[in-house]
Amino acid sequence: MVVFIIRRILLMIPVLLGATILCFVLVDVVNDPVQDKIFEISQSTGEPVPQSTIDALESSLYYDRGIPERYWIWLTGIGDTNGDIGLLQGKWGPSIEGSAMDIGYEISTRFWITLRLVLFATIASIGIAILAGVVSAVKQYSRTDYTLTFLGFLFLAMPIFWLGSLFKEGAVQLNKILGSTVFQTYGSGTTGFRGNGWEVFIDSLPFLIVPTLVLMLGGYAAISRYQRASMLEVMNSDYVRLARAKGVRNRTVMRRHALRTALIPVATFAPLALSGAMGGAMVTESIFGWRGLGVYSLDAINAGDTFAVMAYVLISGVVVLIGVLISDILYGVLDPRIRYE
């Protein structure tokens, strides 16, 4: 098992490297932060920008060299650098906003905010998907089944940003009616709140409810349809019939025999749900005014800040790959036929 996990992690490294190379080249080719910055300066001063400033900008952002060298420096930090770049040395590179904005600091503070949201939403959506899928399958062709299927289609068709805006305004209205602030609809926690991890978590709960609900509803529908299909297939299989014939109680058949096997295909979709929630976090964070990673990447895109965009790409890639790893391990837990040796 340990050998299997280590081998999978080693196989993920080239994939992650490939993804960063592809993104780096694309983002780098279409953006020219030096030109943007020069334009900004000349707009504010009203004079042409002196060559010395341009040169200083280029060397501080490493734009005085080619893309391959810039990528190499970004990754390793080996070579002629200003000492602020090199991923393998734990440095994320200079931000276009100057030295006041430290990408590493921004990311480390925002990471937990986003991870909290994404993990809650993914776990909740997988949970509700399994529940809805199993109920649909057990009560196949009943009114419950049709209602759940239609709801699934509806949420599959609903854009997250629309659902998010609707729920946000709904929560505001609800707060008005109740005269309280059960649901916080702006920000990710009380500003300036300090305390240990648990207190911070309790503080953030009212802020977390509505965005998590939105992401959950946006992500559960696809999985629940697969859960229904696989549950139906298993319920019609011979070994489930045999278990019933032996006189095993219905609940035990469902739980021990049917559900466990029916969960295997769904384990495939866990990483997909995770990557979907990472994308959805971008939208929900910007609607609910969170200062998380998603909004950070959005700002970075708008500013043409290559190194900041790359930081997001890397983190999101690592999170998704960890999701893939977990789902591979889950296969082994759920399906006794699969052995990792």
């Binding site: 694309l26 994308g279 939208v283 790409v313 890639g317 998704v320």
Partner: peptide, 11 residues
């Protein structure tokens, strides 16, 4: 699959 779709298309 690893590349975040909204970020790269948005960029």
């Amino acid at each position: 699959f690893v590349i975040p779709f909204l970020v790269i298309t948005g960029a």
